[in-house]
Amino acid sequence: MPSLFDTTQAGDLELANRIVMAPLTRNRSPNAVPPDIAATYYSQRASAGLLITEATAISHQGQGYADVPGLYGTEQLDAWKKVTHAVHEANGKIVVQLWHVGRVSHHELQPGYGQPVAPSAITAKTKTVLIRDGVPVFVETSEPRALALEELPGIVHTYQAAARNAVETAGFDGVEIHGANGYLLDQFLKDGSNKRTDDYGGSIKNRARLMLEVTRAITDAIGGGRTGIRLSPVTPANDVIDSNPQPLFEYVVRQLAPLNLAYIHIIEGATGGPRELPDRPFDYAALKAAYRSAGGKGAWMVNNGYDKSLAEKAVADGADLVAFGVPFIANPDLVERLRSNAALNKPDKTTFYGGGARGYIDYPTLD
C-alpha cells in the first residue's frame, strides 16, 4: 500500500514524501517584498515533499490584499531568491503560486488608484485586507471594470513572464497557477462572474479559454513538468459560482491533460470549510477519471480539511499528494509529527495575517 511518507514524482519534481504545504497568505510582505524572515519560515517547513508559497501577485494590477508578495520587481525576485536558497539548503522543493486576483481587490491597492479588473463589471460580494495604522482591516472590494478584449494577451504574457522569472531568476523549482477561489482565472471560468459575449464568455470552451491560454504559455516557457494548477470546482469563496460545474471542470482537465503538468491541485468542497456542499454536489472521482482518460499523467493533489487518517485514506484510494494548510502554520515539523503520531501545536489565529516573527517562525518543534 502506498504511504504518505513514500517518495514520489510530480512531473520533473522528485519529492521526498506525499505531504504538501498548501499556499497560505500571511500578509508580511510590505511593498510586495518578502521579508528576510520568510526564508526562515519556509526553510523550517522544508521537510514537506513540496512547499507551495503563499499566493504571489504577477503584477501590481494582480494584487488584491495589503502586504502580499509579488514577482514583478527586481527587489521582489531578489528576496524570493533568498527563500529558495534557504529551502534548497534544507533539501526541500518549493514552487510559487502565481496570482492575479481580478476583481477581489480595492482601488487603494491598484496602480494609480484605478479600478480592479474582471471578466465582467460585477462587484464581488466579499472583503479584502488593507493595512491602516499598522493594523490589518477588512474592507469591501471595489467595483471592477471589465477587461477589454485587447488587454487579454497582455495578461497571458504577464503570467508567462512571472513564471519565467520565478524559475530562471528567483530559483523556484516550478510554479502553481492559481486558478481557484474566485480569483481572475476562476472568475473567467464560472458563469456567475463571467457575463461576456465575446470569445471569452458564454460557452464552456470560451470561459475556459483564458485559463488554458495562460497554462499553455507558462508550459511553453518553463515546461509542463514544472507547472501545476489549482482548481476549486464548487467553493463559494469570493462570491463565485457556476451553474453546472461538473461538465465545466471535466472539460478543463481534459484540455490540461496533453500539457504534461506536474500536478493538478483540487480543493474539495468549500475552501477552508465543509468538504461536501449539499447544494453543490460534485463528483471528484469522475473529474480525476476525465483527466486520466484524456492522457493526463500529472500527480493528483487533494486539499481541504485533511488530517492524517483522512490523508492516508486518500492516498490508499489513489491520490498522489495531500496538501495541508493551517496545520503547517503552527507545526513547521508537521511531517515528523504525522509520522510519529505526535500532538500538533495549536495555531494562534490572531497572528495569521500581518505582523512579524510571532506566530510565524516561533512555533516549537519536537525535541
Rank of each mutant, 00 (worst) to 15 (best):
K81L: 08
M1R: 13
N27K: 07
G305V: 00
G174S: 09
P136Q: 10
V137Q: 14
Q63C: 12
L261A: 10
A16E: 13
A90F: 12
R339K: 15
S340E: 15
G182Q: 04
N27V: 09
L15F: 11
P35V: 01
L50N: 02
L287I: 07
N206M: 06
H178Y: 10
A217M: 01
S43R: 04
L15I: 05
T219N: 04
T141D: 02
D12S: 15
G356L: 13
T126M: 10
G114T: 07
Q97Y: 05
G296C: 02
A90N: 14
K313W: 02
Y41R: 01
Y284V: 08
L185M: 06
D283A: 07
L231Y: 10
Q246T: 09
A294L: 05
A237F: 14
A319V: 08
A146P: 09
A217L: 03
V302P: 02
Q110S: 08
A48F: 09
F138M: 14
G354L: 02
A90Q: 14
F249A: 05
H106Y: 07
D191P: 09
I241T: 12
W99L: 15
F352R: 00
I218N: 01
V252I: 15
R226L: 11
A330P: 05
L212S: 06
V322N: 00
V175Y: 12
A121N: 12
A237V: 11
G273A: 15
A319Y: 09
R230P: 07
G223N: 13
P119K: 13
R254C: 05
A221I: 09
P144H: 11
L344D: 11
D186E: 11
G228H: 06
A262D: 01
P258Y: 12
L152A: 01
A118M: 10
T25L: 14
G354F: 01
A342H: 14
T197N: 09
Q9F: 04
P332M: 08
A170T: 00
R18M: 08
T141E: 03
K127W: 04
